[in-house]
Design a protein around this nucleic acid. Structure first.
Length: 506
RNA sequence: GCAGUUGUAGCUCAGUUGGUUAGAGCGCCUGUCUGUGGAACAGGAGGCCAUGGGUUCGAAUCCCAUCAACUGUACCA
């Protein structure tokens, strides 16, 4: 007795899940799978090859390309290497492991590690990455990225190609021209602008004024020009009363940057000309403009117009390792969220040129460029815009069980249907026929087959179109009517069953 | 990280100036309906009122702490 009491006192684990992580169910997975397949076909059309790398890397592999960063430990899930005893050398670089937080750093490692890889090396990779940061709506600590990169080429053709691939991928997903846009900028131009403003005390370091300026520009889409100008000057107080310290620029400098941010124009060429005027006194700046012009020439030759790819000086793309052109694939379509508020989806692709990433391993210059898609975000966008007509179930047909003694026959029928290339599920539960219909309805299985003793005798089968029935039921008020009409159901001889199923499934 | 708001059923929320047995809608299960989904009607299950401490004769309600969520902001490789 007392033993039992003790047993009951043992705490049962509460089912729960760590913040920022989630369970994903069939509906979402099926949709994601389909999306990934579509994008993969585009990547492969351009000749990219698949690569897989492990979820866990040594911390220094991921980390230290940001020389003075207060990260990475902050944003990374890291833990002790269990192979090493705690007494082992404390500064052994193998001591700490971490979950990868993107797919680019591991790519650089692979390239540095396998020296004999044929260059240029073009690969795509999809998989989960992990970041230890505050989760928000549509922002998780574990999420999928789908990258493609060209390593070992400094040609602007590679960068132009990245833009093409992003366009093609979004088009393949069903977004039409005008619903998406690739925005391109160049880090060299930004550096040129900073130089022209007399902020050339780069190397850009974590807390420098130049850095604060870039951060401010990066907020353009959210705060708009007035907010950015506040941040360039003294600072900005937000709705909650929190104050963000500004960059304390002189009015003259702010004016220059304002001019820079305003240098948008109808055509890419025009943007380039405007930017050139602005940074012509800076060597890097001129180089950056030249790069953009080269990209423009390729894109124009291929027929990618200004509605698909535009040059946008407000694009910053974080403060990361980018050294040249940077890209952002945005969805311009507006969506409504649950509360009916109109929202912009915004950026779904991001990337750029990172010529120094491999160098930190080998010392060798290995230019590279690429982009990454935020799979979950794009998925969310597709769900709320439209074009995801994915159901929860993989089965096209549910074979119901009327008479359990005939289970073998039902089983055989299901097999027969499968052999004809149609996904068929045999009902394996205990419910009566009503339960089984309900099951098919809830699972969103489009068709159900009913065979009882009558049908066995006549060599027939009842086939019910659940989707059609659901529609018809809206007009039926009375139970009797509902039952007698048996909506959307028909008798079909066994010999014609398969072809009829095919026909009904379209 | 900082600031504000909020934690009551699976979900969305009521819950009086502290008062005895904690409420609704939706969803779920069962039946009306023994070979047919929906609707309708009837019934049922489901709560340590986030957690821990205080104040009080008495706390979902008041106070403190912790945790979590949401919003803004910062950071974002």
């Amino acid at each position: 007795m007392s033993k039992q009491k003790k047993k009951q006192k043992v705490k049962k684990p509460k089912p729960r899940i760590f913040s920022g992580f989630r369970d994903v169910f069939s509906e979402d997975i099926l949709l994601r799978q389909r999306m990934i397949d579509t994008i993969r076909r585009v990547y492969e059309k351009y000749g990219y090859l698949p690569l897989e790398t492990p979820a866990i890397e040594y911390v220094d592999i991921l980390g230290k390309f940001l020389p003075e960063s207060t990260t990475p430990q902050g944003g990374v899930f890291s833990f002790r290497n269990p192979d090493l005893s705690e007494k082992a050398q404390p500064d052994d670089p193998n001591t700490w492991l971490a979950l990868r937080y993107d797919l680019t750093a591991p790519l650089a490692r692979v390239f540095a590690q396998y020296v004999d890889i044929q260059r240029p090396f073009r690969r795509y990779q999809v998989g989960p990455v992990w970041r230890y940061e505050k989760p928000g709506p549509g922002r998780f600590r574990e999420f999928y990225q789908f990258d493609f990169d060209s390593v070992g080429t400094s040609s602007m053709a590679a960068d132009a190609e990245i833009c093409c691939v992003i366009c093609d991928a979004l088009a393949a997903l069903g977004f039409s021209e005008g619903e998406y846009m690739v925005k391109v900028n160049n880090r060299k131009i930004m550096q040129g602008v900073l130089e022209v403003c007399g902020l050339a005390d780069l190397e850009i370091s974590e807390s420098s004024q130049a850095m604060t300026v870039l951060r401010a520009i990066d907020k353009m889409d959210r705060l708009g020009l007035p907010g950015v100008i506040q941040l360039l000057g003294k600072g900005r107080r937000d709705e909650s009363g929190d104050f963000t310290e500004g960059a304390h620029l002189e009015n003259e400098q702010i004016a220059k940057i304002e001019q820079y941010l305003g240098s948008r124009a109808e055509s890419r060429d025009e943007v380039c000309r405007g930017l050139f005027e602005l940074v012509k006194d800076s060597e890097v700046g001129r180089k950056g403009v030249a790069e953009l012009q080269e990209i423009d020439s390729f894109l124009s030759a291929l027929g990618y117009n200004g509605k698909q790819v535009e040059f946008d000086p407000t694009i910053v793309r974080g403060l990361s390792y980018y050294t040249g052109p940077v890209f952002e694939g945005v969805l311009t379509k507006e969506i409504k969220d649950e509360s009916g508020q109109v929202k912009q989806i915004g950026s779904v692709f991001g990337g750029g040129r990172y010529d120094d990433l491999v160098k930190r391993f080998t010392g060798q210059e290995v230019p590279a460029t690429g982009a990454s898609i935020g799979v979950d975000r794009l998925l969310e966008a597709m769900r709320s815009t439209d074009n995801s007509s994915c159901r929860k179930s993989t089965a096209d047909v549910l074979v119901t069980v009327m008479d359990k003694k005939c289970m073998a026959d039902y089983f055989k029928l299901a097999q027969e249907i499968r052999e004809a290339g149609i996904n068929a599920e045999l009902y394996l539960g205990n419910g009566n026929i009503g339960k089984q219909m309900k099951y098919a309805d809830k699972q969103e299985i489009p068709l159900a087959i009913i065979i009882g003793s009558d049908e066995f005798e006549k060599k027939e089968a009842q086939v019910k179109d659940l989707n059609l029935g659901r529609k018809l039921s809206e007009e039926i008020l009375d139970r009797e009517e509902w039952r007698e009409e048996n909506p959307a159901q028909q008798s079909i001889s066994r010999s014609e069953l398969i072809s009829k199923l095919r026909e009904m499934l379209g």
